Amino acid sequence: MLQKTYDWMMDKAAHRHAIWWMALISFIESSFFPIPPDLMLIPLVLAAPSRWWRIALVCTLASVAGGYLGYAIGYFFMDTIGVAILNLFHLNEKFEAFRPLVDQYGAWVIIVKGATPIPYKLITIAAGAFHFDLAQFTFASIVARAMRFFLVAALLWKFGPPIRDFVEKRLTLVMTVTVVLIVAGFLLVKLL
C-alpha cells in the first residue's frame, strides 16, 4: 500500500497542478497522511528552480494549516481518531515520551521536532491533546516547517540535481545540524 501511495504522489508531482497537489499532501501529512511532502517538493523545485521560494512557501503554509487539523484531532478527538492515527503509525510510545518534553521546553520542542523528519502528525496531535497554547503552537509550527521546507528548497535551488540524493538520504542529518545551529544562535544572542 505504501508503494502505491508513493507512486501516486510521484504521478501528481508531474501533474500540471503539481504545486496544489503538494499543498494537499503537505496539509494532510500534518495530521494523518503517511508520506512527507518533501517527495513532491524536491521534484517541483528541480523542475522550476526559479520558483523555489514560492514552492517552499506553499508547502509551509499548507503544512501549518494542516497542523491545525492535527491539533483539533488531539484536542477534541484524542480518545478516538487521535489514538487510531497513533496506532496506525506505531507512534504511541513517542507520543507518551513527547509530553514531558512539551511541558519542559514548550514551543522549542515543537520547533526542533517539527523541523526534523519526525512525523509532524505526532507533534500536532500531541500539542492538541496536551492543550498546548494555540498561539505558541502556531508560531512554533511556522518556524519549524519554514526551516524545513525552505532549507530543502534553497539547497535544491542552489546546487540542483546533485544535492537531491544527499537531501533525500540525509534529511535527518541536514535538519538536525540546522536546528542545532539555530538553537545555538538563539542561546548565544540570549547570553550576550
Score class of each variant (00 low, 15 high):
47 A>T: 09
47 A>S: 15
47 A>P: 07
48 A>R: 13
48 A>Y: 15
48 A>G: 08
48 A>E: 08
48 A>P: 06
48 A>M: 11
49 P>V: 10
49 P>M: 08
49 P>G: 05
50 S>H: 13
50 S>R: 14
50 S>T: 14
51 R>L: 14
51 R>Y: 07
51 R>F: 08
52 W>G: 02
52 W>P: 01
52 W>S: 01
52 W>T: 04
52 W>L: 00
52 W>Q: 07
52 W>D: 02
53 W>C: 13
53 W>E: 11
53 W>Y: 14
53 W>N: 13
53 W>M: 14
54 R>M: 13
54 R>I: 12
54 R>Y: 11
54 R>T: 13
55 I>C: 02
55 I>D: 00
55 I>Y: 07
55 I>G: 02
56 A>D: 02
56 A>K: 00
56 A>E: 02
57 L>M: 14
57 L>W: 09
58 V>Y: 02
59 C>N: 07
59 C>T: 12
59 C>I: 10
59 C>M: 04
60 T>N: 04
60 T>A: 02
60 T>G: 06
61 L>T: 07
61 L>Q: 12
61 L>V: 15
62 A>H: 09
62 A>T: 07
62 A>M: 11
62 A>C: 14
63 S>M: 05
63 S>R: 03
63 S>N: 14
63 S>Y: 06
64 V>N: 01
64 V>W: 03
64 V>Y: 00
64 V>E: 00
65 A>D: 03
65 A>G: 09
65 A>I: 06
65 A>E: 06
65 A>Q: 05
65 A>H: 05
66 G>C: 07
66 G>W: 00
66 G>F: 02
67 G>L: 07
67 G>M: 06
68 Y>T: 04
68 Y>R: 08
68 Y>V: 06
69 L>V: 15
69 L>Y: 06
69 L>E: 05
70 G>S: 03
70 G>Q: 00
71 Y>W: 12
71 Y>L: 10
71 Y>S: 03
72 A>P: 07
73 I>L: 09
73 I>R: 01
73 I>G: 05
74 G>V: 04
74 G>H: 04
74 G>Q: 08
74 G>Y: 06
75 Y>E: 14
75 Y>G: 05
75 Y>R: 10
75 Y>S: 12
75 Y>D: 11
75 Y>K: 12
76 F>N: 12
76 F>Y: 15
76 F>E: 12
76 F>A: 15
77 F>D: 10
77 F>P: 05
77 F>H: 07
78 M>T: 08
78 M>S: 14
78 M>E: 14
78 M>Y: 15
79 D>F: 10
79 D>T: 11
79 D>K: 12
79 D>R: 13
80 T>R: 14
80 T>C: 09
80 T>L: 08
80 T>P: 01
81 I>Q: 03
81 I>S: 01
81 I>M: 10
82 G>C: 09
82 G>F: 03
82 G>N: 03
82 G>D: 07
82 G>Y: 00
82 G>V: 06
82 G>M: 03
82 G>Q: 06
82 G>R: 02
82 G>W: 01
83 V>F: 10
83 V>E: 11
84 A>F: 12
84 A>M: 13
84 A>P: 04
84 A>W: 11
84 A>E: 14
85 I>W: 05
85 I>Y: 06
86 L>Q: 10
86 L>W: 04
86 L>P: 01
87 N>M: 13
87 N>G: 11
87 N>S: 15
87 N>W: 09
87 N>L: 11
